[in-house]
């Protein structure tokens, strides 16, 4: 009887916690990420990379903080990803007319010029959205946010991101392509 009552009590407590709705589903692990791959296209060549391939590349961790076109700030976070320069390395030397087209699986497209591919020429802001200069920005394909795999809602498994060496540096969010699926080099 004692044991039965004990189990009943434990069950009721578990049930009440469950019903309270306060237990959040914090599992950020992406399912199906193993099926994701990135297509690289340049000069008639095509190459595919898996998430595992990207994770094996040297990683960069920095401050991730962006602002939407309407002034809404997202962050600050700590982001980790593979350097864009490493990923496009096999595409060969860039020249003045090089453009990288970044496609998201939602049909979104953004274009970077050769200066931006080197991490230069980005507009940066401070926390008050006043423009700042001379910030070191590193373009990456980000797969982790605050130490967790990037959730689908945040653009995972892989999102283009502009990471900063310094905290509090905000970049324009229009180029942070979510659900990156293809990189295409135009010369």
């Amino acid at each position: 009887m004692n044991q039965k009552t004990g189990w009943l009590a434990v069950s009721l407590i578990v049930l009440s916690l469950f019903m309270s709705g306060c237990i959040t589903d914090d599992t950020d692990e992406n399912t199906g990420d193993e099926n994701w791959n990135l297509t690289l296209e340049w000069d008639g060549n095509t190459q595919h990379m898996s998430l595992s391939d990207i994770r094996k590349m040297p990683s960069y961790t920095g401050h991730a903080y962006l602002v939407s076109t309407t002034g809404i700030r997202y962050g600050p976070y700590i982001g980790t990803g593979a350097l864009l320069s490493d990923i496009i390395g096999p595409m060969g030397e860039l020249n003045e007319t090089s453009r990288l087209y970044l496609y998201g699986s939602d049909e979104y497209l953004w274009v970077l010029d050769n200066i931006q591919l080197k991490g230069e020429g980005y507009i940066t802001f401070d926390e008050n959205l006043s423009e700042t200069e001379n910030q070191i920005i590193t373009p990456v394909l980000m797969y982790e946010l605050d130490g967790k795999p990037l959730s689908e809602e945040d653009g995972g498994p892989v999102r283009f991101a502009l990471l900063s060496e310094n905290p509090g540096v905000i970049t324009e969010g229009s180029g942070w392509v979510k659900w990156v699926s293809k990189l295409e080099l135009h010369r």
Binding site: T5, L8, A9, L12, I13, L15, S16, L17, M19, S20, G21, C22
Partner: peptide
């Protein structure tokens, strides 16, 4: 008593919504 406690816990956590 246990049921009362559970009810209190439930009501308490319901406040999280």
């Amino acid at each position: 008593s246990i049921l009362c406690i559970c009810l209190i816990i439930f009501l308490f956590f319901s406040g999280c919504t």
